[in-house]
């Protein structure tokens, strides 16, 4: 039995950029780079992709002030810190939504399939974690790839989700290597969020 309750979450608020992406917030000279600005060096293995999108609130309005974090396996399905993981790939990205367009964008590599603890594999996916003013506890979701039909059909997490809602997790290929996915916090297209 655990003895201690987890510390409570509180909203990241509207000024999250000061602490998490100070260079983006105009506080230059503190840190060389904002954390998570680069996920892969030129030497990283695997197919280069971008993942971009926007976030909408329950009124259908674009959210401009969110911060999005990405966490994913490398091209071989290994996470940073595991034996054999690609040393040229951090797996961690952090992107503030653009103040004008609301867009977030990650330059990364296509992740490989990840082991499922009860046996078998999970389809390639990227975990996203979204914080902003009005979000009391960080929103955890996953992005799968719409062009991975076979792997997606066998994915044990997607299998738990009704088909119409699973579509909210599928990034659509655009031009070569570019994927897009919009996130809806409420409404008929509300994105599936997880408590894992």
């Amino acid at each position: 039995m655990s003895k201690h309750p987890e510390t409570a979450s509180q909203t990241a608020g509207p000024y999250v950029h000061i602490g998490c992406t100070p260079n983006f917030a105009g506080l230059t000279g503190l840190y060389e780079n904002d954390l998570g600005a680069d996920m892969a060096t030129d030497k990283a293995q695997g197919a280069r992709i971008t993942l971009s999108g926007r976030i909408f609130d329950g009124a259908g309005d674009l959210i401009h002030d969110a911060l999005v974090e990405a966490w994913q396996a490398d091209a071989a399905g290994r996470h940073a810190g595991q034996p054999g993981a690609d040393p040229h790939f951090s797996g961690f990205g952090r992107c503030p939504c653009d103040a004008e367009t609301g867009e977030f964008r990650f330059k990364t590599v296509k992740p490989g399939p990840v082991a499922w603890p009860q046996g078998g594999q999970q389809a390639p996916h990227i975990t996203l974690w979204i914080v902003a003013r009005g979000i009391n506890i960080g929103l955890h979701t996953r992005v799968y790839f719409a062009d991975e039909d076979v792997a997606n059909a066998q994915d044990p997490v997607l299998a738990e989700i009704a088909d119409n809602r699973a579509a909210t997790l599928l990034a659509r290929p655009q031009s070569a290597g570019d994927y897009r996915l919009d996130i809806h916090l409420q409404g008929p297209n509300e994105t599936v969020f997880f408590a894992v």
Partner: peptide, 9 residues
């Protein structure tokens, strides 16, 4: 307007 309505999975 920023709180998901569905229970998380």
């Amino acid at each position: 307007l920023r709180s998901p309505q569905a229970e998380p999975i």
